[in-house]
């Protein structure tokens, strides 16, 4: 088996530098690469473009990079719940590209799977479609959207093995499988890293070929954004 294991998050982030484009998995705070984000804050890389569905909250997730003014541009579908984000956006310090969520996922998937561009009906007739090529298929108008280009993809899985195979849990899967393999280097962090052969090949969600580096995260806070419960 080809071994994708790296010692820790420092080795996993080797080669990260200013002005790069990163993909970061997660939906809200669920399934975000917590350890890689903490490392990016520590490395203090500046001027980065982040492709991520959301932008975290003020003191967690990508909000931590925003606090330190490390992000030049965010490409997301929804960026509420973040006061510092709002301030930087309104003051013009932060560039923001808002795109439909399905288009975001598919632009990752396209980058991963060698599709340079694709047509989607999402956003046709809206400001999202301004300046984009359009084409009619089956009587319906579509927009031409392009695959993303990114330097690093940081994804988070529940379990992984030394061959880089990944298994997710619950809705923490979200964008992670679509981003794995969509950048020049994919860094996967997992809650539990096991030897190749210990995971059932029938249960692998992302084959190791899409992952260049894998490590077990030191700890996971897994913060809940909206706690909603019912009484027993």
């Amino acid at each position: 088996m080809i071994n994708k294991t790296v010692a820790d998050v420092s080795e996993a982030c080797k080669g990260v530098s200013d002005n790069m484009t990163f993909m970061l998995g997660g939906f809200g705070l669920s399934g975000i690469p917590e350890n890689a984000i903490a490392k990016l804050v520590e490395l203090n890389v500046k001027g980065v473009t982040c492709i991520s569905n959301n932008a975290g909250v003020d003191d967690f997730g990508l909000g931590l990079l925003l606090q330190k003014h490390q992000i030049k541009k965010m490409i997301s579908s929804y960026v509420g719940e973040n006061a510092e984000f709002e301030r930087q956006m309104l003051s013009g310090e932060l560039e923001v590209d808002l795109i439909p969520q399905g288009t975001l996922a598919q632009r990752c998937q396209a980058a991963k799977t060698g599709i340079p561009a694709f047509y989607t009906p999402a956003g046709y007739g809206t400001e999202v479609g301004e300046g984009k090529e359009t084409k009619e298929f089956n009587g319906k108008m579509h927009l031409l959207e392009h695959a993303f280009k990114a330097d690093f993809a940081f994804v988070k899985a529940w379990k992984g093995d030394t061959a880089g195979n990944l298994i997710f849990k619950g809705t923490a899967r979200n964008f992670n499988p679509n981003m794995a393999g969509a950048a020049k280097v994919t860094v996967a962090e997992v809650e539990e890293l096991v030897e190749a052969g210990e995971l059932d090949p029938n249960h692998i969600h992302v084959p190791g070929i899409f992952v260049q580096r894998i490590f077990q995260g030191e700890k996971y806070e897994k913060r809940i954004e909206q706690l909603t419960v019912r009484k027993k």
């Binding site: 939906f27 975001l104 996922a105 809705t171 923490a172 964008f175 897994k222 706690l227 909603t228």
Partner: peptide, 23 residues
């Protein structure tokens, strides 16, 4: 924390539920 809906609220899965990626 690994089971939320699109409003980021904690949820449960019913019998016969399935989970999948965003694409």
């Amino acid at each position: 924390p690994d089971m939320i809906n699109a409003g980021k609220q904690t949820i449960t899965a019913l019998k016969g539920a399935s989970l999948f990626d965003s694409a």
